[in-house]
């Protein structure tokens, strides 16, 4: 029993030491902009711009479902123009950032983990080291900056599309006019609703990129190892989103 506890303790200490060293390396790499800066724009396009279609697809259906759900819940009890308030506030503050984050945890986190994992098992990461290229500055920092900057942009677009989708649904399928829908939106809107969601989404982007990089660079074995890392990156990314979501709710609301 004591041996087992010792082994667990040693493993935990090893994990903490490796993660600490990794974090220190990544922090130091921030001071090497001549390596990471040229990579940022291409990564913003790959991780951000290329993710717009999936984010907007999700937003369209989120808006439709929210409008219909709100109408169903409010029937007879609450004025129907509250549909606009519920759709806008829920999408801006919660569903927009979280659902977009979850979708992008799959797309972006898996993309980063698979790419870096493949580089690791094919010795491309070792090759970078032998060429005296800082691996964190070349691979991790540009992806993390790109995801942190682009997630709020993609989320903002998803929020806009989600609200428009809810409005179209409300005016076409419910007994609600455009004026009534936007009356609800305006009546309960606060500036904080918008920046709260965008701050959250920036932190989601940062966490997903770090999880993807961390698991990718620790890949061992061949294709099977890459598969394991990819799955792990997505799971850790989703977990990080839920934890951060609760954290921001506690801190900012």
């Amino acid at each position: 029993m004591t041996d087992r506890l010792n082994r667990i303790g040693v493993a935990q200490l090893g994990f903490i030491r490796r993660t600490g060293r990794w974090a220190a390396d990544a922090w130091r790499a921030l001071g090497l902009p001549r390596i990471w800066a040229p990579q940022v724009i291409p990564q913003m396009r790959r991780l951000g711009v290329d993710s717009i279609p999936i984010a907007l697809f999700l937003a369209v259906f989120t808006g439709i479902v929210l409008a219909l759900l709100a109408s169903y819940i409010f029937t007879g009890a609450v004025p129907l123009y509250f549909v606009g308030a519920l759709v806008a506030k829920t999408i801006m503050m919660e569903l927009g950032p979280v659902l977009t984050g979850m979708a992008l945890a799959g797309r972006v986190g898996a993309n980063i983990a698979a790419e870096l994992g493949t580089m690791k098992v094919t010795e491309q990461v070792d090759a970078l080291e032998t060429l005296a290229v800082d691996v964190h500055a070349y691979l991790v920092v540009p992806r993390t900056i790109a995801a942190t900057v682009m997630f709020p942009v993609v989320t903002a677009m998803a929020i806009a599309v989600g609200v428009v989708s809810g409005w179209i649904t409300a005016t076409n399928l419910l007994d609600l006019s455009t004026q009534e829908f936007f009356k609800g939106v305006r009546q309960f809107y606060q500036f904080k609703d918008a920046w709260f969601g965008l701050v959250k989404s920036a932190s989601f982007g940062c966490a997903i990129a770090i999880m993807g990089s961390l698991t990718g660079l620790r890949t061992q074995g061949g294709a099977e190892g890459v598969g394991r890392s990819t799955t792990r990156a997505v799971v850790l990314g989703c977990e990080a989103i839920l934890v951060l979501d609760a954290f921001w709710a506690l801190v900012l609301l």
Partner: peptide, 28 residues
């Protein structure tokens, strides 16, 4: 500095897939 004085040729070449041959050689 030490690594800059040592060239390493990997078993499967370990070329960077996303870079051209020129950029692979130029990276270091």
């Amino acid at each position: 500095r030490l690594r800059s004085s040592i060239g390493y040729v990997f078993q499967f070449a370990a070329l960077f897939d996303s870079l051209s041959v020129f950029d692979n050689v130029a990276l270091g």
